[in-house]
């Protein structure tokens, strides 16, 4: 139990967060998305066999670009948005707890969901598609882990800044990462998915030339993780809750 004002984790808030994510209807989507990914991996493997291009297309195009960010979006907004929307966050905020503790505890739940429903299915789909190439599988799993956690921070901050975080998150994932990320090469500088892919790509094939340098990808990821978490806590500290008027 976190009672001091020093940032830490609060088991109580973590427990509430878990119940909030899975206690709602959209929690079901968290189970559906990884099933789609693994199901498609099985289908590709059955139709194409072991093929690196097909595996990469599936794990990147469906896994990293669609499933991982959506799982993070569902996890993060499930743990934050409902309480902000209905005002019940007042019960958390009216306590002598560091606002960073609230953010860290909620992010723990969201990143946990991202690992279980994003990273692990990517690992499984990787083994289905490329059973004989552990570097390939681990590279994509690491990319999924990094992207998932970073997205959680991005969407947590979005939930604090705007009441329509789910819609904004969906547009960001589908338009920026999904559509523009494939069309415009400049998007890579501001794309969480492509940063994570650059890091994972080093493990898949250390000698391959990458569009993004490993250094840039790592620094950008760390800046978003640390800066976003700090900003979200700070934002919660100045969170205005007006009454009904």
């Amino acid at each position: 139990m976190s009672t001091s004002t020093r940032p830490g984790l609060s088991p109580t808030i973590v427990e509430l967060g878990v119940r909030s994510v899975f206690g709602r209807r959209r929690g079901v989507l968290l189970f559906v998305l990884p099933l789609v990914l693994v199901g498609l991996a099985i289908l590709v493997r059955a139709l194409v066999g072991v093929d690196e291009d097909a595996a990469e297309g599936t794990l990147y195009g469906l896994g990293l670009v669609v499933v991982v960010p959506l799982v993070s979006l569902l996890g993060t907004t499930g743990v934050l948005a409902p309480e902000i929307d209905d005002g019940s966050i007042a019960y958390l905020l009216s306590k002598p707890i560091s606002r960073h503790t609230i953010v860290l505890s909620k992010l723990t739940v969201a990143t946990g969901a991202s690992v279980v429903f994003g990273t692990l299915p990517m690992l499984l789909a990787g083994f289905v598609l490329m059973p004989g190439d552990p570097r390939f599988v681990l590279g994509f799993a690491l990319a999924a882990l990094l992207a998932g956690v970073t997205y959680c921070v991005v969407f947590a901050l979005a939930s604090m800044l705007n009441r329509h975080a789910v819609v904004i998150g969906l547009i960001y994932v589908l338009v920026w990462e999904g559509l523009l990320g494939g069309l415009l090469s400049g998007v890579r500088w501001l794309s969480v998915t492509q940063w994570a892919a650059a890091v994972g790509g080093r493990i898949v094939d250390p000698d391959a030339t990458q569009d993004l340098s490993l250094g840039y990808a790592l620094v950008a990821t760390v800046v978003v993780l640390v800066g976003g978490t700090w900003w979200a806590g700070r934002r919660l500290r100045s969170f205005n809750i007006a009454g009904e008027e």
């Binding site: 009672t3 005002g87 019960y91 958390l92």
Partner: peptide, 25 residues
Amino acid sequence: VPEREALFDYLTGLRFVLVNAELQG
């Protein structure tokens, strides 16, 4: 005691009060 009705509806009354006690440390 906020005006808004929203509570953690999925909790029992006891658990809700207990949560508040735990968060108070």
